[in-house]
Simulated assay, not measured.
Amino acid sequence: MATVLAVDDSMSIRQMIKVVLGPAGHTIIEAEDGADGLAKAKSGAPHLVITDLNMPVMNGLEMIKTLRTMPALTGVPILFLSTESDEGIKQQAKAAGATGWITKPFKPEQLLAVVSKLTRA
């Protein structure tokens, strides 16, 4: 199964991701903002990154742009999980290197299906 880096300033969202993906066999690494996510991505070699957009210290877009410059992580899928549903923001995320987008609140089965597809697990 996959190692998933969950980057969100909301502990309850990170816990929800663990509750949904953990029983499916995925290992979850938690980070509370983009800077923390970058540090953990460097040391944890995730198979997938799930990130929020709006976070303190470093937002999701900035984190994605930086992740995409790191050779070891260029091919790692990145899934945006955000309350934002604006098309312009989605286009910015795609341009930055995001693979997909799920709007919060999410359905557990939707998250599991997308993660399974992106990690082929």
Results as ranks from 00 to 15, higher is better:
G25V: 07
H26R: 04
K42F: 13
V76M: 14
N59D: 14
P23S: 09
R68V: 03
L53P: 01
D86V: 09
M16Q: 12
L73H: 12
K94Q: 13
E87A: 14
Q15W: 09
T83G: 12
A72Q: 12
K104V: 12
D9G: 11
K40N: 04
I13C: 08
I29K: 00
E30M: 05
T51G: 07
Q91L: 15
P46L: 04
L48M: 08
R14P: 00
L61F: 10
I28H: 00
I28R: 00
G60K: 04
Q91P: 10
V7Y: 04
A24W: 10
G22T: 01
T103I: 13
N54F: 15
A45W: 11
M11L: 15
S82W: 01
R68S: 03
M16D: 09
L38M: 13
L79R: 00
M58G: 11
A24R: 14
N54D: 15
A24F: 10
M11T: 13
V57Q: 15
L21I: 06
I13R: 04
V19C: 08
E62M: 10
L79G: 02
T103E: 13
E30I: 04
D8I: 03
I13G: 03
A96S: 08
M70T: 10
N54R: 15
V76G: 06
M70R: 07
D33R: 06
P46T: 02
L81P: 02
D8H: 06
T3R: 09
V76Q: 06
I89C: 07
K40H: 07
P23H: 06
T103D: 11
T99Q: 07
I17Y: 03
T3V: 08
E32C: 10
I102T: 05
T74D: 09
D86K: 10
T51F: 05
S12R: 09
T66V: 14
P77K: 05
I78R: 00
S85T: 15
V20L: 05
F80D: 01
M16C: 10
L61V: 12
A35D: 15
T3W: 02
A72P: 07
